[in-house]
Design a protein around this nucleic acid. Structure first.
Lengths: 232, 232
DNA sequence: CCTTGATAAGGTCACATCGACCTAAAGTTA
DNA sequence: TAACTTTAGGTCGATGTGACCTTATCAAGG
């Protein structure tokens, strides 16, 4: 970039913050780096953007390589771009961070690119005991903040649920991501009053114990109005 | 990028969507391009990110060059990164778009980099009669959407007001950006009930006609709770 | 076969907020 | 002084919310 003509060595990558709900915890997909820098350390999945490849396309490709999941069915949105000089010790690197949300995604499969990938509770990944490569801790932090905020005024919570799902499943998403308890009755009232947040299927699912719950699918609404208020 | 090692010709730029209120209209700063491509056409201000320069730093520098304003006093946030192949016919270019909001900013000064810059009402810039270079129309559209949305649940509206300002000034921001009328009385109640959105100065300003209005300064709160609801 | 326990479904009620509207205060202009 | 304009502030019915209660429907156990 020294000549300001775009020919100096600059790299552009995408990094993914992939969240899912496993074992009643919000978990993030991390990979073990197989090459320097930060070899052996943990990092967010990601890679270089290829020629002729859209940014979103690159994110979808990485998503498929790391989780084996068809990203077309997940929620995927751009988070922010990080480009502080020195964040990659090798070359000036800009990374476009993406946030992906999905229902309980499969464990990474051995024998693939994803062999060195694993799920880790977000709380653990953000704790001082874990060190992530590059500035991935900051990216993860921002992904968490974004996800928490978006639950309030959008319907993305349903992206964490495998269809069909019960209202308890959906409430569970809020409770885990926000780390608090919600009143089942009031939650039900809000969700059903919001227009086309969820649509009933007429079918029911019997839990291990208790009354069977009706099953729902995602509605078409993206924006949640009125918003789900997050208690103090 | 063909070798995935970050040495292929790739350019990274920042582009700015700079909004201000002039003559009771939301206006955006556009420049007349002095070189190809799109020579002579209108475009958002922006430029290459330099070595050793932060993304935000590059945005602040361009802001100063184009408006002569010390960006430290404006609201500046990252919008999104655009990198569709072919968006720049010369070389693969990724642009990190920033959104800047400020009070009635000075007209561009002749004899500077900003000589070819001018303010244009956003409605006009987005109309079919105006063609912006590259994908700047899409970027502008997204900046407008972001600004409109952020007025709801943050206090950025105050960034459009020169301090000190009246509640009518602040209300005017909402009315212009949202293109609708708000009830002065209810607006007043909401703003004053929100904690530390604005702080009274005790001073008053006499308008051309009508009762003098109390003057306020920006408070420290960033998030507006409860949010300002946008009528349908 | 009925009780217990658990969860879903749905209702009640006091309270806060909101939109629509009204009144009073404090200036300027005719 | 009257008319007009804008700010400041209040009222009231409608609506949303949190806390809590009741009932329905299943499984498990006596």
């Amino acid at each position: 970039m020294s000549k300001y003509d775009g020919t100096a060595p600059v790299a552009v990558t995408v990094d993914l913050v992939i969240f899912t709900l496993r074992e009643s915890a919000l978990q993030v997909l991390l990979i073990e780096r197989g090459k320097p820098p930060f070899m052996g350390g943990l990092a967010l999945p990601g890679g270089f953007v290829r020629d002729h490849e859209d940014l979103r396309g690159a994110a979808l490709r990485e998503l498929g390589e790391e989780t084996g999941v068809d990203g077309a069915k997940l929620h995927l949105e751009q988070l922010r771009t990080f480009g502080t000089p020195g964040r990659d010790p090798r070359v000036r690197t800009f990374t476009v961070a993406y946030l992906a949300l999905g229902p309980d995604l499969p464990a990474p499969v051995a024998g693939t690119d994803a062999a060195h990938a694993r799920w880790m509770p977000v709380a653990q990944a953000l704790s001082p005991s874990v060190e992530l490569a590059f500035d991935h801790q900051a990216i993860l932090r921002e992904g968490l903040d974004r996800a928490r905020g978006k639950l309030e005024y959008t319907t993305v919570a349903a992206a964490f649920c495998q269809e069909p799902f019960t209202l308890a499943d959906l409430r569970h998403v809020y409770e885990v991501v926000w780390d608090l308890d919600l009143d089942p009755s009031n939650f039900r009232r809000k969700v059903l009053k919001a227009d086309d947040f969820v649509v009933p299927t007429g079918a029911f699912r019997a839990p291990e114990v208790g009354r069977p719950a009706e099953l729902y699918r995602r509605g078409r609404t993206e924006l949640l109005y009125p918003p789900m208020v997050r208690p103090a």
